[in-house]
Design a protein around this nucleic acid. Structure first.
Lengths: 135, 135
DNA sequence: ACTGTGTATATATCATACATACACAGTATG
DNA sequence: CATACTGTGTATGTATGATATATACACAGT
């Protein structure tokens, strides 16, 4: 699975959702890479195709790809296409871990503000994980 | 402590920080209320005074107060002032708890993406709480 | 040359924040 | 007791930056 396989389905993209479109798209692609559904060397959908699929402008895809390139997940070659980079999965993993830490940090701050004890916080997390397992 | 006590100090407000100014300010006031440092009936700083203190426009304070009013934390009377509402602390507590859940939800999603086990996630949270205790 | 690819430029729209002007409540004062 | 004054919240119009767009340009392979 090395050559062009530009078909991939990922979740809904909406300007109503949290954060800008290009970030949602970049996250979605990063998630595909982290999940090993895209391997190094694989060709990404062309900016035009993905733009058409997601009912979004070419520029927005371009910007998402720029973010991913800056993060070392992909590289782009004019006239050829965009491809998954070599250590992409590792980078994606690192990025994902950083996101976890960021979210947990925010949760801790909010928990302090809400006057939750650490035990209560663990209990809440445990409950939310249980809920998620059912769904 | 019922009448006007418009003096309160809260953390730094900066356009560099995450989120818009009016939201930072609203959060700061909500935190003061949740911490019972502002009681029901207490007068909030006037929009002009707070604007001057925070080196920010009157409109920005106005908008922050609107958010707080929408959340049921305060109420405003033209020509008189803005005051802490009756069940404000309860509302603030509920809001704070909702924030915790939101952040934890994001953390869970990110953790799944990063292929963390639940045990690893708990361990990470424990470590971050330990770090925070030192600081 | 032709068609597919990424890229750049100029434009539209919206959220954010601002300065300024307006409207209302309480109080002093002539 | 009327009226000006000072405090309060509120509304209007504007500037800026981020986001997303349509359109046009540049390169690669056939």
């Amino acid at each position: 699975m090395n050559s062009d396989s530009p078909d991939l389905q990922f979740g809904p993209i909406s300007s109503a959702a949290e954060g800008p479109l290009y970030e949602q798209i970049a996250s979605a692609v990063a998630r595909e890479i982290a999940a090993r559904r895209l391997s190094p060397g694989d060709m990404l959908p062309s900016v035009r195709k993905l733009a058409a699929d997601l009912l979004v402008s070419v520029i927005t895809i371009k910007r998402a790809y720029e973010e991913l390139e800056r993060a070392g997940l992909i590289y782009s070659r004019q006239g050829i296409g965009a491809f998954v980079a070599e250590n992409a999965a590792a980078h994606a993993g690192a990025d994902a871990l950083a996101e976890v830490k960021l979210a947990l940090g925010a949760a801790i701050v909010a928990a302090r503000r809400a006057r939750l004890t650490e035990a209560q916080m663990f209990q809440l997390l445990r409950a939310m994980l249980k809920e998620g397992d059912q769904a």
